[in-house]
Amino acid sequence: MSVYSRARRALPARVKTPLRRALKGTLRTVDEYLPDSLSRRVRRAVGRSTPARAPRGAAPAGDPLGLAPGRGPAASLATVATGRAAAVTGRDPESAHRLNRALLGGRAPRPAGGGRRIAVLAAADLVAGLESAGHEVHPLLPGTARATIDLSEVAVIDLAGVAGTWAGALDAEGVALYLELQDALSHARSQGVSVWLVDRGPDRFRLGAVALRRDGGVLTIRPGAVPPQHHITEDPGDAPTGVVDLLRDLDPLQPPSGHEPAAPQPVAQPAPRTASDALTNGSQEARR
């Protein structure tokens, strides 16, 4: 018999009952802050009728999809913030997956007819083209983009399709959306998912478009442009190249502006970017 059981037996009923009630009330308030072992001991002390707490990491009762994060979002600000800044919290890398489970209940769509599962952020013509070719298209959407990558084998970002829910993502004002997209693409690369960028349309000069083109992990296709020439020893001729063929044949959506490229430069690995690299006004800050 445990010490708690002996203590319970020793107490008169007129003391035991109100004491148990008081302890249960306290336990409800503090339990989530207690280490597991102490929580178990306190629950034993107040009697078996107190519901066991779910093991840490498991979805709490009423949350079968495990939506609630461990302790809630941690504040990212060390100082006292006022105004809107007071409401900001740190980034939760699992947020997209939680939301996606809420929306889809954890179901994973299945490819059909041999088509590829392709995550897309694209204009309507590209989506239609992929679907006509038998592929299964999963739209990348703000809030769930990272989770959609997990369902996909290929990702296609079409600069002409950055609109609708992604409107502004290529501009400075939409940098939060851009970073969510970049996070999803980074996740794609870590999963071995190829990321193709369709470089077309009037928005190809926007900040985010320039940044995507310069991203070494993104494979850029410019519709209508002459494809790179292969060395004679590795020329595949007219072998089909799947999604790439489809992307190359797209309408560039603007008149071709270049008849010859900028003077050839030796190909170099992009240098690590620093904050000063993008400064242009010859300021002394840029030289530090």
Binding site: G83, R84, A85, A87, V88, T89, R91, S95, L99, A102, L103, L104, G105, P139, L141, P142, G143, T144, G164, T165, W166, A176, L177, E180
Partner: peptide, 22 residues
């Protein structure tokens, strides 16, 4: 959320993180 997940308008809904830059 379940109804929204199955609704065609889901593709017109953007869940954006809160930010101070209103």
């Amino acid at each position: 959320f379940a109804r929204l997940g199955a609704d065609p308008v889901r593709h017109a809904v953007a869940f954006e993180p809160f930010g101070a830059d209103m």
